[in-house]
Simulated scan of single mutants.
Amino acid sequence: MVSVLIVGALPYDSGKTTFALNLIREAIEEGFDVGVSKPVGGFNGWYQYEFLKKSIEFGLLIGEDAYKLHNAAKSIDRIELESPVTVLLLPPDPERVGWRVSSYMGISFQNQVVIVRISGLHRTIHYYIPENLNKLTKPLRGEVGKLISVLNPKPLSVGKLDDILSESRKIADEVLRYLEHYHDLMVIESYANYAAPTFGSLDVDVVVVVAPSKAVIFDGEQYKRAVSLYFNLKSPWIVTTEDVLPLLRPRKIVEFGPEGPKNSLEKVLQVVDASSSL
C-alpha cells in the first residue's frame, strides 16, 4: 500500500483537491484500488450552499472536498469515514459588528462554526453551536434549522469546541488506519496550509505540497522529521507548510496548468521507489 498526503502551500486556493483528483483518476486508470481521506475538513454554507443542501439530502454533514474525492475514487467506503471530522461554517450577521469590514473579516473560526460531525468506526455524532447559530441572519438561521431538524445534533458551547475537535483527531486517525487496509493507494488531503490534519496522517510514503500551477513532492519520512521539530511546541495541524518547507529538499517538482497535473502518479511512485531503495 502506498500512502500520499497532499497539503497546501497557501492558506486557501492552493489547488490541493485539483491535484488529488488528477492523481486519483490516473491511479484508477492504472488499475489501483484507491482510498481517499479528508480527516479534518469543513465548508462554508454561504459560499458552498449546494453542500448544505446535500447534507440535508444525505442526513449527514458532507463537505465539498470529501464529496469530490469520494466520487473520483468511485469509492464504496462510507463517506463519513472518508471525512470523519467535518464542520459547517457560516458568516454571522455583519450588522452585529457595525458593518466594520476589518472586524467582520477578523471573526474567528470558532465563532463561525455552526455544526460539527464526528464519525468513528461505530457511530456518528453531530453537534451544533447555539451561540453561533443565534449570530446568523434570519434567512441563514432558517437554512440551518432545516439541517438541524434532519441531523438532530447535540448542543455544544463555543468554549468546548476546541476540546471536541482536538479529541476528534484521534478518532480520525483510527478511521484512517482502518481504511488503509483495504486499498492499494491512499490519498489523504489536509486543509488550508497546515502541515498535517492529524498525527497519523504524517505516517505516509510521500507528501505533496501544492501551490497554484506547481507542486513539490517530498519523501514522507523526511517530511515527518521536519514537522516533528515543532512537536514540542505545536501539533502538526498548527504548524504550517511555510515553517517546514525551508527544512526540506524536494524529490520531484511538478508544474501544471488550470486543468491539473499530468503524470502525477508516475512522479509520486518514482519518489516512493527512490525512498525504498535507500
Rank of each mutant, 00 (worst) to 15 (best):
M1C: 07
V2D: 09
G8P: 11
A9Q: 10
L10T: 06
P11R: 12
D13W: 07
S14G: 09
G15Q: 08
K16W: 03
T18H: 03
L21R: 01
N22T: 13
R25L: 11
E26M: 06
A27D: 01
E29Q: 15
G35C: 05
P39Q: 01
P39L: 11
G41M: 05
G41R: 03
N44Q: 05
L52G: 01
K54I: 12
G59L: 09
L60A: 11
L61H: 06
G63T: 01
E64D: 13
A66I: 06
Y67D: 04
L69E: 00
H70Y: 15
A72G: 00
S75T: 02
V85M: 06
T86Q: 13
T86G: 09
V87Y: 15
L88I: 08
L89H: 14
L90P: 00
P92Y: 05
P94H: 02
P94N: 04
E95D: 15
W99I: 12
S102K: 15
S103Q: 14
Y104W: 12
M105Q: 14
G106F: 06
I107M: 07
V113Y: 05
V113G: 07
V116G: 04
T124P: 02
I125F: 07
H126K: 13
I129W: 06
P130M: 09
E131Q: 11
L133E: 13
K135S: 11
L136A: 09
T137W: 12
K138Q: 13
G145Q: 14
I148H: 00
S149R: 13
S149L: 14
V150D: 06
L151E: 03
L151Q: 09
N152E: 13
N152Y: 06
K154D: 06
P155W: 02
S157G: 12
G159R: 13
D162G: 03
D163G: 07
D163S: 15
I164G: 00
L165I: 08
E167F: 11
R169P: 12
R169Y: 12
D173F: 04
E174P: 04
V175H: 11
L176Q: 09
L176K: 12
E180M: 08
A192M: 07
T198K: 02
T198E: 04
D203F: 04
V204N: 00
V207D: 00
V208G: 00
V209Y: 00
V209H: 07
A211F: 03
P212Q: 10
V216K: 14
F218P: 00
G220D: 11
E221F: 14
E221W: 15
E221Q: 15
R225C: 01
L233A: 14
K234L: 14
K234N: 11
K234F: 06
S235M: 10
P236W: 08
I238L: 13
D243I: 06
L245F: 07
I253Q: 08
E259H: 09
E259V: 06
G260C: 08
K262P: 01
K262S: 08
K262L: 09
N263M: 09
S264C: 15
L265T: 08
V268Q: 04
V268T: 13
Q270C: 14
V272T: 10
D273I: 15
A274C: 03
S275C: 13
